[in-house]
Design a protein around this nucleic acid. Structure first.
Length: 217
DNA sequence: AAAACGGGGGC
DNA sequence: GCCCCAGTTTT
């Protein structure tokens, strides 16, 4: 890839990071981990409701490790897939108490050994709690990277590989979070708001449709 | 590679 | 009513 192209991609990334900071409040690794598992395939509002209720009754890893699934169904129901998630977060808590001395592991290998924790969840925890370079390509990052023209890929895994070659490590965490915000507010899956997009002049998709339509959507 | 888990909100 | 949501696990 041409160096000018790479420089432009990094420039656009910085711009997105600037304009769409991820609002991160919670830093307690236990709460971030559990809330992130609850957030899988679930809207933020529902995740927030569920995790808030859950932590009122089970505020730490020790109390949750002793819970029974049926005790927390109603607490986390709003997050969907609640029977599965209930079993997983209790099991996760038990493993952390028994194998990791009550501390959430700060490395990818150990995180991935936990039930319900895959690459995306693990990387979110690594970035938010432990400030590690972590790029977890989800549907937002995959869609946006292709739309802007950063990569031309079929799967999120291919996108992850491509982005890691282009973008310096220090931006991996921030760009991941920023693209999620950007994807929710502007670069929507079906009807992206290209007219009000702050990086549309660098966007391959926008530039390809700009002259074929007359400013609709 | 595809199915299954799942309630809540947007359209 | 149908589709989507910072996915992961099982078949």
């Amino acid at each position: 890839m041409a160096e000018t192209n790479r420089r432009q991609i990094i420039f656009v990334c910085k711009k997105i990071i600037d304009l769409f900071p991820r609002s991160s409040f919670e830093k307690d690794p236990f709460r971030v981990l559990i809330a992130t598992i609850l957030s899988q395939r679930t809207k933020d509002e529902n995740t927030d409701k569920a995790s808030k209720k859950l932590f009122e009754s089970f505020p730490d890893v020790y109390s949750l490790s002793m819970a029974k699934p049926s005790q927390i169904y109603d607490l986390i129901k709003a997050s969907g897939m609640y029977r599965q998630k209930a079993e997983r977060i209790i099991k996760v808590s038990q493993i952390i108490v028994e194998k990791f001395n009550g501390k959430i592991p700060a490395n990818l290998h150990d995180l991935l050994s936990l039930p319900g924790v895959g690459r995306k969840t693990a990387n979110i925890v690594l970035y938010h709690c432990f400030c590690q370079p972590a790029l977890a390509v989800d549907t937002h990052v995959h869609r946006i990277s292709n739309r802007l023209g950063f990569v031309k890929t079929k799967t999120p895994e291919q996108t992850e590989e491509g982005l890691k070659k282009i973008i310096p490590e220090k931006f991996w965490g921030p760009i991941n979070g920023a693209m999620v915000e950007f994807g929710k507010k502007v670069c929507l899956p079906r009807k992206p708001k290209c007219q009000e997009c702050p990086v549309n002049k660098y966007c391959e998709y926008f530039n390809s449709i700009k002259f074929s339509e007359n400013g609709k959507n």
